[in-house]
Design a binder for these strands. Sequence first.
DNA 1: GCCGTTTTCGGCCCGACTGTTTTCAGTCG
Length: 590
Amino acid sequence: MTKEEIAGVLEQIATLLELKNENPFKIRAYTNAARAVETFGGNISNFQDEEALSKIPGIGKSIALKIKELATTGSLKYLAELSAEFPSGILELFSLPGLGAKKIKALHDKLQISSIEQLQKACEIGRVAELPGFGETTQQKLCDIIAKRAAHAGSFQVGQIAAEAETLRSDLAAQGSAVQVDLAGSYRRRKEIVHDLDLLVATKNPADITKFFVSHPLVESIIAQGPTKSSVRLRSGVQCDLRVVSTTEYPFALAYFTGNKEHNIELRSRALQRGWTLNEYRLAPLPVDPKAKKKRPIKKIPNVHDEAGLYRAVDLDFIPPELRENWGEFEAAENHSLPKLIEKENLRGTFHCHTTASDGHNSVEEMAEAAQELGLEYLGIADHSRSSIQAHGLDEAKLRFQIASIRTLNNKLHGLRLFAGVECDILRDGSLDFPNEVLAELDYVVASVHSVFNLSEIEMTRRVIRAMENPFVTMLAHPTGRLLLKRDPYPIDIPKIVDAAARTGTWIELNAAPKRLDLDWRWWPLAKQKGVKCVINPDAHRTERLQDLWFGIGIARKGWLTKADVMNCLPVVKIEGALRAKRESVGGDR
DNA sequence: GCCGTTTTCGGCCCGACTGTTTTCAGTCG
């Protein structure tokens, strides 16, 4: 059983306990445990090891036993008993915004509703509005939400909403009364998937800012509107929340709305340890509790003018937003061992790009010009190989023609070095789409899987490792093949791939296309620890998409990477040697 | 159900908005 499945079961228990109106802290314990399994589960090789499980913060004896039962038997008696108390379809009601456990329980107890379909019918004949605690407005809202739920599914690739987000930010910043404006939330943490956008504005004139926001042309409908907070639905379907605060409150609000939730809880608990309470507006002394047995030590509250000041107040180095996932950043910030994360200015070139020769939309010359405009020193062209028929992959003759034209073009270009490469298919058995003597004519080789995704994890892992063992393979591209929200990763053992990359000196790509962002940020600390090098590539099929490198930088930062970990931060004078290193180190088995 | 430099018992983050109320419960983040 995977850690995702185990976390899913714990979430389900939490939801069912909510329906039972259980102790809220017990419910939270299960939610926390689910989160802990997802976060720390990577360090657990065997979920039957009860002792190792209960060492994970947030998992105690009772939940460790349940996880062990799940891992051993594939099922859980406790869950079966809980589930038996409610109709099976009832959990889907939780997917409707505005409905929580209390209301769902009322609908179930009073109207025997246990599915979205039944709820829709009850709303249409007016039964819902008759219930205590419900009314006409609620009933109408539920009707609308059910009708629109497909369009408002609630998860977006960050690339789908980045343009809207940046437009709103700059339009708000252009308002005279806006002193500071930031996009906070998961967007600021550079998550690959976002569920909503959070905008924060410091101003003396909250009413003006709010009015401007809710009437912005990108806004489709208003969900809520109050003096400090308003929520709207944008045309793309994403929900967008605006918070308006004063300049003094701004750093606290910015930290609070950047999150994530677990990071915030830790931050607040550090404030509590110092005798303070932290909310989105300020640090304040804790109210004195006359019943307290011992007096808390109270430290003087320092002045805070920015986020760094807030972290300093609780004895931490500034934690960059991308790391705020409660994923080890507090320990590092306390020990002054946070890495200096890579920045987009550190990138000097990139490798995985396509042209009209295969399935790209621009010529080599146009791609080169666009790369120069971005300030890059070098650009690698890697069109598809012959087996990628759907992508008009190049045969040997066409590849040789492209290599020659790249060499010629290099003599004409000033300030940009082009490298000739190929994105070579890894065939079913792990062999490559071109023989080594062809690969030897190139400056580098990008290897990737584009077919036969349905192998077992063992076969797929063996296939990819065999390809990496070829001395001409410079880098492994999009290592899991995932398309975010569209196609799951194919089964592959990433720790084994990382070990093979370390052993063979193969770089691993961080594919910066927002639909991929593959390899996932959660694996990069492991890769880094093993000494594996990252290469950030846009996989650009047209000139504008070279800018997707920006998304790649975000994910690299989330993966704790520095410029030393990323090969394409090397200047052009050093990258050539690096490209040759692997084929030379193994002697090249040509 | 979890946790402990305040603790093995008694806490557990906390505020905004909505709708249904007539002072607040429910939901959300």
